[in-house]
Amino acid sequence: MSQLHRESVLTAIRASLAKVVLPDARYEPPARPSPPTREVPTDPADLRAAFVAELQALSGQVYSPADHAEAMDILLDVVRGCEAEVAIAWDEAYLPLPGVWEALAAAGVRVLDSTLPPSSDEPAHAARLAELEQATVGVTGALAGLADTGSLALPSGPGRGRLASLLPPVHVALLPVARIVPTMAAFFASHPNVVRRSSNLVFVSGPSRTADIEQTLTLGVHGPRELHVVLLASAL
C-alpha cells in the first residue's frame, strides 16, 4: 500500500515542478550551490582553546590532566563526587585511557556496558533497563570534538552504547586533544563514512537543558545534568 502511494506522491511533485509557476529566480541555478568559504583556526592550540571556551560557556566542565594517572584521578574524583555505585561505560577498547573498568571496580563501582537483550525477550529487556537506570555516571570516549561549538561527536557501535551518555545524570567523556577539529563540516570531511558505520551519531554540546518554563534555564532534564570532558594529551 505504502509503495502505491510512493508513485502518487512523486507524480504530484513532478506535476507541480512542471508547472513552474515559481516566480523566483532563485530556483534557476540547477547545479548544487557551494558554500561560502570561511576562515577557521587550524592551529592545535587555538582549536583546543576555542573548544574549551565554548564548552565551558555551555556549563560543561573541562579538565586538562598532565598524564594518564592524573586523568584517572579526575575521573575517580567525579565518580566519588556523585557517590556513584553503578556506572555505564564504553568497552575498554574504545576508551582512550587504559584501565578505566579496573580502576572503577577498585573504587567499589559496579561497571555495566549498555547491552540490552533483544526486545523479543521482554522480561530480560525490562530487567536490564531497570539495572542500567541505577547508574549515576556514564563513561565514554569521543570520536571528535568540534571547536566552534564545543561539541563532542559520539558514534554508536559495538562496545559503544548510546545509553552511557544518556541515561545517567553524570557523563564523563575522555577526548584525546588531537581529535579536536574546527567545525562539523571539517568533521564530516575527515570521517566521510561515519553515518554509514554508526546507526546513531550524536553531537553533544553541554549538559541536557530546557527553557520551556518562561525561558528559565534548567539543566538536566532527560539527559545528564553534568558533563565532564577530560582532555588527554596523547591520542590512543
Binding site: P158, M184, S199, N200, V204, G206, A211
Partner: peptide, 20 residues
C-alpha cells in the same frame, strides 16, 4: 531558534540498531 550555536543534542540516525 533559541540563540544557541548548536542544540545540546544533534542526533544523526541512520537505520535501526545494527545487528552483527
Amino acid at each position: 531558534a533559541t540563540g544557541q550555536k548548536l542544540s545540546v543534542y544533534t542526533s544523526l540516525l541512520t537505520g535501526p540498531r545494527r545487528r552483527p
